[in-house]
Write a protein that binds this DNA or RNA. Structure first.
Lengths: 211, 211
DNA sequence: TAGATTGTTAATCGATTAACAATC
DNA sequence: TAGATTGTTAATCGATTAACAATC
Protein backbone atom coordinates (compact mmCIF):
# COMPACT_ATOMS: atom_id res chain seq x y z
CA UNK A 1 0.00 0.00 0.00
CA UNK A 2 2.46 2.63 1.13
CA UNK A 3 5.83 3.01 -0.47
CA UNK A 4 7.53 5.00 2.26
CA UNK A 5 11.21 4.20 2.43
CA UNK A 6 10.71 2.53 -0.96
CA UNK A 7 13.71 0.35 -1.73
CA UNK A 8 16.08 -1.11 0.81
CA UNK A 9 19.13 -2.63 -0.84
CA UNK A 10 19.43 -6.43 -0.81
CA UNK A 11 22.65 -6.34 1.14
CA UNK A 12 21.07 -4.19 3.81
CA UNK A 13 18.11 -6.56 4.00
CA UNK A 14 20.41 -9.48 4.64
CA UNK A 15 21.86 -7.58 7.61
CA UNK A 16 18.53 -6.59 9.15
CA UNK A 17 18.02 -9.94 10.90
CA UNK A 18 21.44 -9.56 12.50
CA UNK A 19 20.72 -6.02 13.62
CA UNK A 20 17.44 -7.24 15.02
CA UNK A 21 19.14 -9.95 17.09
CA UNK A 22 21.72 -7.61 18.57
CA UNK A 23 19.24 -4.84 19.28
CA UNK A 24 16.89 -7.30 20.93
CA UNK A 25 19.66 -8.50 23.19
CA UNK A 26 20.54 -4.94 24.18
CA UNK A 27 16.89 -4.09 24.70
CA UNK A 28 16.38 -7.17 26.88
CA UNK A 29 19.31 -5.97 28.97
CA UNK A 30 17.49 -2.69 29.48
CA UNK A 31 20.04 -0.62 27.58
CA UNK A 32 18.35 2.39 26.01
CA UNK A 33 20.89 4.06 23.80
CA UNK A 34 23.89 3.13 21.69
CA UNK A 35 26.20 4.87 19.24
CA UNK A 36 26.72 3.57 15.73
CA UNK A 37 30.37 3.04 16.65
CA UNK A 38 29.61 0.82 19.62
CA UNK A 39 26.83 -1.14 17.92
CA UNK A 40 28.86 -1.63 14.75
CA UNK A 41 31.75 -2.95 16.77
CA UNK A 42 29.58 -5.58 18.45
CA UNK A 43 27.95 -6.66 15.22
CA UNK A 44 31.11 -6.65 13.17
CA UNK A 45 30.36 -4.00 10.55
CA UNK A 46 31.74 -0.48 10.10
CA UNK A 47 29.92 2.42 11.79
CA UNK A 48 29.59 4.01 8.40
CA UNK A 49 27.85 1.00 6.93
CA UNK A 50 25.54 0.72 9.89
CA UNK A 51 24.46 4.36 9.57
CA UNK A 52 24.00 4.01 5.82
CA UNK A 53 21.87 0.93 6.37
CA UNK A 54 19.66 2.52 9.01
CA UNK A 55 19.19 5.68 7.01
CA UNK A 56 17.57 3.68 4.26
CA UNK A 57 14.42 3.38 6.30
CA UNK A 58 14.41 6.22 8.76
CA UNK A 59 16.27 8.73 10.85
CA UNK A 60 16.54 7.31 14.30
CA UNK A 61 19.70 8.82 15.66
CA UNK A 62 20.21 11.93 17.67
CA UNK A 63 23.27 13.99 16.87
CA UNK A 64 25.75 13.69 19.67
CA UNK A 65 23.79 10.97 21.48
CA UNK A 66 23.39 7.88 19.33
CA UNK A 67 20.38 5.68 18.63
CA UNK A 68 17.42 4.85 20.85
CA UNK A 69 17.48 1.07 20.96
CA UNK A 70 13.85 0.23 21.53
CA UNK A 71 12.62 2.61 18.85
CA UNK A 72 15.06 1.19 16.34
CA UNK A 73 14.12 -2.33 17.35
CA UNK A 74 10.44 -1.62 16.75
CA UNK A 75 11.15 -0.23 13.30
CA UNK A 76 13.27 -3.16 12.22
CA UNK A 77 10.74 -5.59 13.69
CA UNK A 78 8.03 -3.98 11.58
CA UNK A 79 10.13 -4.16 8.45
CA UNK A 80 10.78 -7.84 9.06
CA UNK A 81 7.08 -8.47 9.69
CA UNK A 82 7.61 -9.48 13.29
CA UNK A 83 4.59 -7.51 14.43
CA UNK A 84 2.39 -10.01 12.65
CA UNK A 85 2.10 -13.73 13.17
CA UNK A 86 2.92 -16.26 10.50
CA UNK A 87 1.91 -19.84 9.83
CA UNK A 88 4.44 -22.30 8.56
CA UNK A 89 4.30 -25.84 7.26
CA UNK A 90 7.16 -28.23 6.55
CA UNK A 91 7.05 -30.75 3.75
CA UNK A 92 9.48 -33.64 4.04
CA UNK A 93 10.07 -34.80 7.59
CA UNK A 94 13.46 -36.46 7.32
CA UNK A 95 16.27 -35.57 9.68
CA UNK A 96 16.48 -32.01 8.44
CA UNK A 97 12.71 -31.51 8.42
CA UNK A 98 12.57 -32.79 11.99
CA UNK A 99 15.37 -30.51 13.09
CA UNK A 100 13.67 -27.49 11.60
CA UNK A 101 10.33 -28.49 13.09
CA UNK A 102 12.04 -28.59 16.47
CA UNK A 103 13.87 -25.30 16.05
CA UNK A 104 13.21 -23.47 19.30
CA UNK A 105 13.36 -19.89 18.07
CA UNK A 106 10.37 -19.62 15.76
CA UNK A 107 8.24 -18.36 18.62
CA UNK A 108 10.44 -15.29 19.09
CA UNK A 109 9.84 -14.52 15.45
CA UNK A 110 6.08 -14.97 15.63
CA UNK A 111 6.16 -18.04 13.43
CA UNK A 112 3.93 -20.97 14.24
CA UNK A 113 4.37 -24.46 12.85
CA UNK A 114 0.89 -25.59 11.81
CA UNK A 115 1.49 -28.78 9.86
CA UNK A 116 4.00 -31.37 8.72
CA UNK A 117 3.70 -33.46 5.55
CA UNK A 118 5.53 -36.50 4.28
CA UNK A 119 5.05 -39.19 1.63
CA UNK A 120 6.21 -42.04 3.83
CA UNK A 121 3.11 -43.89 5.19
CA UNK A 122 5.28 -45.10 8.08
CA UNK A 123 5.74 -41.51 9.23
CA UNK A 124 2.21 -40.31 8.63
CA UNK A 125 0.31 -40.11 11.90
CA UNK A 126 3.40 -39.83 14.11
CA UNK A 127 4.09 -36.60 15.97
CA UNK A 128 7.15 -34.36 15.71
CA UNK A 129 7.57 -31.21 17.79
CA UNK A 130 3.97 -31.57 18.91
CA UNK A 131 2.64 -31.60 15.35
CA UNK A 132 1.13 -34.61 13.60
CA UNK A 133 2.63 -35.66 10.27
CA UNK A 134 0.03 -35.78 7.50
CA UNK A 135 0.10 -37.46 4.15
CA UNK A 136 1.26 -35.14 1.43
CA UNK A 137 -1.92 -35.92 -0.53
CA UNK A 138 -3.83 -33.99 2.13
CA UNK A 139 -1.96 -30.79 1.38
CA UNK A 140 -4.47 -29.19 -1.00
CA UNK A 141 -7.37 -29.71 1.40
CA UNK A 142 -5.28 -28.48 4.33
CA UNK A 143 -4.56 -25.22 2.50
CA UNK A 144 -8.28 -24.71 2.08
CA UNK A 145 -8.91 -25.18 5.80
CA UNK A 146 -6.16 -22.95 7.11
CA UNK A 147 -4.04 -20.46 5.24
CA UNK A 148 -0.29 -21.03 5.11
CA UNK A 149 2.21 -18.20 4.95
CA UNK A 150 5.54 -19.98 4.78
CA UNK A 151 6.08 -23.28 2.99
CA UNK A 152 9.28 -25.05 4.01
CA UNK A 153 10.65 -27.64 1.62
CA UNK A 154 12.86 -30.38 3.06
CA UNK A 155 12.17 -33.01 0.46
CA UNK A 156 14.50 -34.63 -2.04
CA UNK A 157 15.55 -32.35 -4.89
CA UNK A 158 13.42 -34.43 -7.24
CA UNK A 159 10.22 -33.77 -5.33
CA UNK A 160 10.89 -30.11 -4.53
CA UNK A 161 9.49 -28.47 -7.67
CA UNK A 162 6.15 -30.29 -7.42
CA UNK A 163 5.87 -29.35 -3.76
CA UNK A 164 6.64 -25.71 -4.55
CA UNK A 165 3.85 -25.73 -7.12
CA UNK A 166 1.38 -27.17 -4.62
CA UNK A 167 2.39 -24.47 -2.16
CA UNK A 168 1.95 -21.70 -4.67
CA UNK A 169 -1.38 -23.11 -5.83
CA UNK A 170 -2.52 -23.38 -2.24
CA UNK A 171 -1.79 -19.72 -1.56
CA UNK A 172 1.45 -19.79 0.41
CA UNK A 173 3.21 -16.42 0.49
CA UNK A 174 6.82 -17.56 0.41
CA UNK A 175 9.04 -20.62 0.26
CA UNK A 176 11.92 -21.59 2.49
CA UNK A 177 13.83 -24.11 0.43
CA UNK A 178 16.37 -26.59 1.77
CA UNK A 179 16.41 -28.78 -1.34
CA UNK A 180 19.32 -28.14 -3.71
CA UNK A 181 17.33 -27.11 -6.75
CA UNK A 182 16.40 -23.80 -8.29
CA UNK A 183 12.63 -23.54 -7.94
CA UNK A 184 10.48 -22.11 -10.67
CA UNK A 185 7.87 -20.06 -8.89
CA UNK A 186 6.67 -16.50 -8.67
CA UNK A 187 6.79 -16.58 -4.87
CA UNK A 188 9.72 -15.19 -2.92
CA UNK A 189 12.13 -18.01 -2.14
CA UNK A 190 14.90 -18.16 0.40
CA UNK A 191 17.31 -20.92 -0.42
CA UNK A 192 19.51 -22.62 2.16
CA UNK A 193 21.67 -25.55 1.19
CA UNK A 194 23.94 -27.35 3.63
CA UNK A 195 26.04 -28.91 0.89
CA UNK A 196 26.82 -25.58 -0.73
CA UNK A 197 27.61 -23.98 2.59
CA UNK A 198 30.15 -26.60 3.63
CA UNK A 199 31.85 -26.40 0.23
CA UNK A 200 32.34 -22.68 0.64
CA UNK A 201 34.08 -23.35 3.93
CA UNK A 202 36.10 -26.14 2.36
CA UNK A 203 37.34 -23.76 -0.32
CA UNK A 204 38.64 -21.38 2.33
CA UNK A 205 40.31 -24.14 4.31
CA UNK A 206 41.85 -25.65 1.23
CA UNK A 207 43.17 -22.35 -0.05
CA UNK A 208 44.83 -21.47 3.26
CA UNK A 209 46.57 -24.80 3.44
CA UNK A 210 47.90 -24.64 -0.08
CA UNK A 211 49.64 -21.31 0.34
CA UNK B 1 52.61 -23.06 -2.01
CA UNK B 2 51.61 -21.94 -5.49
CA UNK B 3 49.69 -18.80 -6.13
CA UNK B 4 48.41 -19.60 -9.60
CA UNK B 5 45.06 -18.04 -10.18
CA UNK B 6 45.77 -15.99 -7.05
CA UNK B 7 42.54 -14.32 -5.99
CA UNK B 8 39.06 -15.55 -6.82
CA UNK B 9 36.44 -13.01 -5.82
CA UNK B 10 34.22 -13.87 -2.84
CA UNK B 11 31.09 -13.74 -4.94
CA UNK B 12 32.56 -16.19 -7.43
CA UNK B 13 33.57 -18.50 -4.59
CA UNK B 14 30.02 -18.58 -3.31
CA UNK B 15 28.89 -19.74 -6.75
CA UNK B 16 31.49 -22.48 -7.17
CA UNK B 17 29.55 -25.04 -5.11
CA UNK B 18 26.53 -24.44 -7.32
CA UNK B 19 28.57 -24.81 -10.51
CA UNK B 20 30.02 -27.98 -9.08
CA UNK B 21 26.60 -29.47 -8.43
CA UNK B 22 25.28 -28.74 -11.92
CA UNK B 23 28.43 -29.87 -13.67
CA UNK B 24 28.45 -33.09 -11.66
CA UNK B 25 24.90 -33.79 -12.70
CA UNK B 26 25.72 -33.21 -16.36
CA UNK B 27 28.86 -35.31 -16.08
CA UNK B 28 26.92 -38.15 -14.44
CA UNK B 29 24.56 -37.99 -17.39
CA UNK B 30 27.49 -38.51 -19.69
CA UNK B 31 27.23 -35.09 -21.32
CA UNK B 32 30.64 -33.92 -22.44
CA UNK B 33 30.28 -30.36 -23.60
CA UNK B 34 28.16 -27.32 -22.85
CA UNK B 35 28.07 -23.67 -23.85
CA UNK B 36 28.16 -20.87 -21.30
CA UNK B 37 24.71 -19.88 -22.53
CA UNK B 38 23.13 -23.26 -21.89
CA UNK B 39 24.88 -23.84 -18.56
CA UNK B 40 24.09 -20.33 -17.33
CA UNK B 41 20.44 -20.81 -18.18
CA UNK B 42 20.22 -23.99 -16.14
CA UNK B 43 22.04 -22.50 -13.17
CA UNK B 44 20.25 -19.19 -13.25
CA UNK B 45 23.10 -16.76 -13.92
CA UNK B 46 23.99 -14.76 -17.02
CA UNK B 47 26.37 -16.33 -19.56
CA UNK B 48 28.58 -13.31 -19.12
CA UNK B 49 28.89 -13.82 -15.40
CA UNK B 50 29.56 -17.51 -15.81
CA UNK B 51 32.40 -16.86 -18.23
CA UNK B 52 33.84 -14.12 -16.02
CA UNK B 53 33.74 -16.52 -13.08
CA UNK B 54 35.40 -19.40 -14.88
CA UNK B 55 38.10 -17.20 -16.34
CA UNK B 56 39.25 -16.32 -12.86
CA UNK B 57 40.88 -19.71 -12.54
CA UNK B 58 41.55 -20.95 -16.01
CA UNK B 59 40.69 -21.04 -19.66
CA UNK B 60 38.58 -24.07 -20.25
CA UNK B 61 36.43 -23.14 -23.17
CA UNK B 62 36.97 -23.70 -26.82
CA UNK B 63 35.92 -20.92 -29.14
CA UNK B 64 32.86 -21.96 -31.06
CA UNK B 65 32.38 -25.18 -29.07
CA UNK B 66 31.80 -24.44 -25.41
CA UNK B 67 33.25 -26.00 -22.27
CA UNK B 68 34.41 -29.57 -21.66
CA UNK B 69 32.35 -30.62 -18.67
CA UNK B 70 34.57 -33.21 -17.04
CA UNK B 71 37.65 -31.05 -17.28
CA UNK B 72 35.86 -28.10 -15.75
CA UNK B 73 34.42 -30.33 -13.05
CA UNK B 74 37.86 -31.59 -12.12
CA UNK B 75 39.20 -28.05 -11.84
CA UNK B 76 36.39 -26.83 -9.65
CA UNK B 77 36.60 -29.98 -7.54
CA UNK B 78 40.27 -29.28 -6.92
CA UNK B 79 39.60 -25.68 -5.99
CA UNK B 80 36.97 -26.78 -3.52
CA UNK B 81 39.30 -29.38 -2.05
CA UNK B 82 37.15 -32.29 -3.12
CA UNK B 83 40.16 -34.29 -4.26
CA UNK B 84 41.18 -34.65 -0.62
CA UNK B 85 39.29 -36.20 2.25
CA UNK B 86 38.22 -34.25 5.30
CA UNK B 87 37.38 -35.16 8.87
CA UNK B 88 34.53 -33.43 10.61
CA UNK B 89 33.23 -33.37 14.16
CA UNK B 90 29.98 -31.92 15.47
CA UNK B 91 29.69 -30.35 18.89
CA UNK B 92 26.19 -30.07 20.30
CA UNK B 93 23.92 -32.95 19.34
CA UNK B 94 20.49 -31.39 19.67
CA UNK B 95 17.95 -31.62 16.87
CA UNK B 96 20.06 -29.59 14.50
CA UNK B 97 23.29 -31.39 15.37
CA UNK B 98 21.53 -34.71 14.78
CA UNK B 99 20.15 -33.57 11.44
CA UNK B 100 23.57 -32.45 10.28
CA UNK B 101 25.14 -35.67 11.51
CA UNK B 102 22.61 -37.55 9.41
CA UNK B 103 23.04 -35.40 6.32
CA UNK B 104 23.43 -37.92 3.50
CA UNK B 105 25.59 -35.91 1.12
CA UNK B 106 28.85 -35.51 3.00
CA UNK B 107 30.22 -38.61 1.35
CA UNK B 108 29.94 -37.05 -2.11
CA UNK B 109 32.04 -34.22 -0.80
CA UNK B 110 34.69 -36.44 0.75
CA UNK B 111 33.75 -35.39 4.26
CA UNK B 112 33.71 -37.99 7.01
CA UNK B 113 32.01 -37.52 10.35
CA UNK B 114 34.51 -38.79 12.93
CA UNK B 115 33.02 -37.72 16.25
CA UNK B 116 30.09 -36.14 18.06
CA UNK B 117 30.30 -34.28 21.35
CA UNK B 118 27.72 -33.07 23.83
CA UNK B 119 27.60 -31.88 27.43
CA UNK B 120 24.45 -33.80 28.32
CA UNK B 121 25.45 -36.99 30.21
CA UNK B 122 22.15 -38.51 29.10
CA UNK B 123 23.26 -38.29 25.49
CA UNK B 124 26.86 -39.34 25.97
CA UNK B 125 27.34 -42.94 24.90
CA UNK B 126 24.34 -43.03 22.58
CA UNK B 127 24.85 -43.37 18.84
CA UNK B 128 23.70 -40.98 16.10
CA UNK B 129 24.31 -41.62 12.41
CA UNK B 130 26.55 -44.49 13.39
CA UNK B 131 28.80 -42.32 15.54
CA UNK B 132 29.00 -42.44 19.34
CA UNK B 133 28.40 -39.25 21.26
CA UNK B 134 31.31 -38.37 23.55
CA UNK B 135 31.51 -36.06 26.50
CA UNK B 136 32.74 -32.64 25.51
CA UNK B 137 35.46 -32.92 28.14
CA UNK B 138 37.07 -35.57 25.96
CA UNK B 139 37.52 -33.15 23.09
CA UNK B 140 41.14 -32.13 23.79
CA UNK B 141 42.33 -35.72 24.03
CA UNK B 142 40.36 -36.68 20.93
CA UNK B 143 42.10 -33.98 18.92
CA UNK B 144 45.44 -35.45 19.96
CA UNK B 145 44.42 -38.92 18.79
CA UNK B 146 42.99 -37.96 15.41
CA UNK B 147 43.26 -34.71 13.56
CA UNK B 148 40.06 -32.79 12.83
CA UNK B 149 39.63 -30.62 9.76
CA UNK B 150 36.16 -29.19 10.17
CA UNK B 151 34.60 -28.32 13.50
CA UNK B 152 30.83 -27.93 13.38
CA UNK B 153 29.21 -25.93 16.16
CA UNK B 154 25.57 -26.68 16.97
CA UNK B 155 25.62 -25.60 20.58
CA UNK B 156 23.79 -22.77 22.30
CA UNK B 157 25.10 -19.32 21.44
CA UNK B 158 26.49 -19.06 24.97
CA UNK B 159 28.70 -22.12 24.60
CA UNK B 160 29.80 -21.47 21.02
CA UNK B 161 32.80 -19.22 21.64
CA UNK B 162 34.39 -21.62 24.13
CA UNK B 163 33.86 -24.52 21.72
CA UNK B 164 35.43 -22.54 18.89
CA UNK B 165 38.47 -21.90 21.06
CA UNK B 166 38.81 -25.59 21.86
CA UNK B 167 38.60 -26.37 18.17
CA UNK B 168 41.25 -23.83 17.27
CA UNK B 169 43.51 -24.99 20.09
CA UNK B 170 43.05 -28.59 18.97
CA UNK B 171 44.17 -27.80 15.43
CA UNK B 172 40.93 -27.72 13.45
CA UNK B 173 41.27 -26.01 10.08
CA UNK B 174 37.88 -24.33 9.85
CA UNK B 175 34.60 -23.85 11.66
CA UNK B 176 31.07 -24.41 10.41
CA UNK B 177 28.96 -22.39 12.79
CA UNK B 178 25.22 -22.80 13.32
CA UNK B 179 25.10 -20.83 16.56
CA UNK B 180 23.94 -17.22 16.20
CA UNK B 181 27.08 -15.52 17.47
CA UNK B 182 30.05 -13.90 15.83
CA UNK B 183 33.01 -16.09 16.72
CA UNK B 184 36.37 -14.62 17.59
CA UNK B 185 38.89 -16.89 15.94
CA UNK B 186 41.62 -16.78 13.36
CA UNK B 187 40.20 -19.83 11.57
CA UNK B 188 37.96 -19.51 8.53
CA UNK B 189 34.34 -19.62 9.63
CA UNK B 190 31.22 -20.28 7.62
CA UNK B 191 28.18 -19.06 9.43
CA UNK B 192 24.70 -20.45 8.83
CA UNK B 193 21.81 -19.30 10.95
CA UNK B 194 18.26 -20.57 10.50
CA UNK B 195 16.73 -17.67 12.36
CA UNK B 196 18.40 -15.06 10.17
CA UNK B 197 17.49 -16.95 7.03
CA UNK B 198 13.79 -17.14 7.79
CA UNK B 199 13.71 -13.44 8.68
CA UNK B 200 15.14 -12.54 5.31
CA UNK B 201 12.30 -14.48 3.69
CA UNK B 202 9.80 -12.88 6.03
CA UNK B 203 10.96 -9.43 4.96
CA UNK B 204 10.29 -10.28 1.32
CA UNK B 205 6.88 -11.75 2.06
CA UNK B 206 5.93 -8.83 4.22
CA UNK B 207 7.06 -6.24 1.71
CA UNK B 208 5.11 -7.82 -1.13
CA UNK B 209 1.95 -7.94 0.88
CA UNK B 210 2.19 -4.34 2.00
CA UNK B 211 2.43 -2.94 -1.49
C1' DT C 1 34.92 -20.99 -45.16
C1' DA C 2 30.81 -19.72 -42.19
C1' DG C 3 28.86 -20.16 -37.73
C1' DA C 4 29.32 -20.37 -33.05
C1' DT C 5 31.11 -19.23 -28.83
C1' DT C 6 34.82 -18.02 -26.18
C1' DG C 7 38.08 -14.65 -23.52
C1' DT C 8 38.47 -10.06 -22.41
C1' DT C 9 37.83 -5.14 -22.42
C1' DA C 10 34.87 -1.36 -21.41
C1' DA C 11 30.63 0.44 -19.41
C1' DT C 12 27.43 0.20 -15.90
C1' DC C 13 25.72 -0.60 -11.68
C1' DG C 14 25.66 -1.17 -6.71
C1' DA C 15 27.81 -1.34 -2.25
C1' DT C 16 31.27 0.22 1.02
C1' DT C 17 34.19 3.52 3.09
C1' DA C 18 35.73 8.13 4.21
C1' DA C 19 34.92 12.63 5.45
C1' DC C 20 32.62 16.41 7.35
C1' DA C 21 29.00 19.89 7.95
C1' DA C 22 24.90 19.87 10.70
C1' DT C 23 23.20 19.67 15.22
C1' DC C 24 21.82 17.74 19.63
C1' DT D 1 29.35 26.46 24.95
C1' DA D 2 32.28 22.26 23.87
C1' DG D 3 32.08 17.48 22.74
C1' DA D 4 30.05 13.87 20.51
C1' DT D 5 27.79 11.66 16.98
C1' DT D 6 24.59 11.76 13.49
C1' DG D 7 22.90 12.19 8.40
C1' DT D 8 24.63 12.71 4.00
C1' DT D 9 27.69 13.67 0.24
C1' DA D 10 31.64 12.29 -2.31
C1' DA D 11 35.25 8.92 -3.32
C1' DT D 12 36.44 4.32 -3.72
C1' DC D 13 35.96 -0.22 -4.54
C1' DG D 14 34.06 -4.45 -6.44
C1' DA D 15 30.80 -7.00 -9.12
C1' DT D 16 27.79 -7.44 -13.08
C1' DT D 17 26.49 -6.72 -17.72
C1' DA D 18 27.31 -5.60 -22.51
C1' DA D 19 29.87 -5.88 -26.50
C1' DC D 20 33.01 -7.64 -29.70
C1' DA D 21 37.47 -9.11 -31.60
C1' DA D 22 39.75 -13.51 -31.50
C1' DT D 23 39.48 -18.13 -32.91
C1' DC D 24 38.08 -22.94 -33.02
Amino acid sequence: MSDEGSAISPKTISRLPIYWRYLKELDDFGIERISSQELAKRIGVTPSQLRQDLNQFGQFGQHGYGYPISELLISISRLLGLNKSWRMIIVGVGNLGKAIASYPNFGKRNIKLTALFDVDPGKVGTVVAGVKIRNISEMPSFFKEQPVDIGTICTTPEAAQAVAEMMEAGGALGIWNFAPVKLKTSLPVKHLHLGDSILELLYCINRRNEE
